[in-house]
Amino acid sequence: MNPVQETSTTGPARTASAVAARAESLTKVYGRGEARVVALDAVDVAFPRGAFTAIMGPSGSGKSTLMHCMAGLDAATSGRAWIGDVELSGLGDARLTALRRDSVGFVFQSFNLLPTLTAAENITLPLDLAGRRVEQEWLDTVIDAVGLQGRLSHRPSELSGGQQQRVACARALAGRPEIVFADEPTGNLDSRSGADVLRFLRSSVREMGQTVVMVTHDPVAASYADEVLFLADGRVVDSLAAPSADGVLERMKALDPRGGA
């Protein structure tokens, strides 16, 4: 474990529990009548602290929905979800906002950065929003790890897709959140840029003690994780610890006879 984290006082209160986020029979239904779609069907899941978890599944299996509901971006139809010890259901907008700001980091597939802010400003944005002081030492560590020195004063439009995504990763970690959710962070990147991002996410878990949950449909990306959960039709149908790309591919094929996500 990273000593910096243990001496941290400005981060969110750490709980003793070994689970960073979990859900109990989490259900999300979109639409009604003919258009009714059960995106999540009573999902039970727990993300261990200090672990890198990947979520896989065919397109439309509910991966993004699970992430949104567990991160407090969207409200579940029924069921319960926790970030640390805080239960999301029943939280008002103000509490949810504060929770997102202080305890959750996000990396999205695209449109991750505010176009008018520089890279450095984008990275510290959640801290600025919270009115929190920037922990310079930690920030330097993060920026170092994503390899963005020298690019900090650039606007997103002046950065490559991979660089933009690394800025987004740095932003997600800048506030030392309880958990980082990343939705297909490499989906728009070429394999080299993707590998940079994935390496960074893995090192943030291994070396900085962070917790990361990543949605992906790429077996190679999933192989960076400590554990892979497989989703199909809104249900967790399988899991695989210490995955290899080939192993993941095997399971995927078993899930979806048509092969792939």
Binding site: T97, R100, R101, F111, L129, A130
Partner: peptide, 16 residues
């Protein structure tokens, strides 16, 4: 909208 939503996702309160 997207920018504002991103701000909200990153923890900007309604008031902000």
């Amino acid at each position: 909208t997207r920018e504002l939503a991103l701000l909200r996702a990153l923890g900007a309160s309604r008031r902000q």
